[in-house]
Amino acid sequence: MTVQELFKKIFFVEILKGMALTLSRLFTKPVTRRYPKEKRPAQLGFRGLHALVRNPATGDAKCVGCGLCAAICPSRCIYIYTSEGPDHQKVVDRYEIEVLRCVYCAFCVEACPFGAVVLTPHYEYADYSREDFYMTKEKLLENWDKYMGEKGFEYFDKFWNPKSTHFTTPEGQAIWRRKSG
């Protein structure tokens, strides 16, 4: 042991160095966020809770029940049940997502030809029962109103750049329009 080392040992030099750093930090701004009180906004494209896009024109979901989201879903957690409506149109009776099984890959959002399903930036949905994580069509539409709303379209279009914009039927192309609509 050299004299230098002995000196350090006797006078706690290392500890004092550390304490000096601690002391200096007392006078700087803290870097941690006080999470429940202080919330951090999610980044563009954060894959949080699911929502079904509400069509402002009809007030109902934009979803037509094509089932592409369910087809692409790797964890098979989307269930869609459709039936024939009174006007012989296709009606989506149930659109359900088992959130607990979801892996948040967002393939469903990419597959949707109508931009009707989205993952919102909302991430605080811990709860006590499994039922709360079984999203029905009503809950999913509510999610849209709560967490996306009007600003949603902008956010949605900017980040997700939904395929529906690419696949818009050209003007004049045959589409099936009903007389009434």
Binding site: V64, G65, C66, L68, K90, P113, F114, T169, Q173, A174, I175, W176
Partner: peptide
């Protein structure tokens, strides 16, 4: 496809 409607998302044959 000139006159075939592109309504595959609701067509049962899709």
């Amino acid at each position: 496809l000139v006159h075939h409607p592109l309504d595959c998302p609701i067509c049962d044959k899709a």
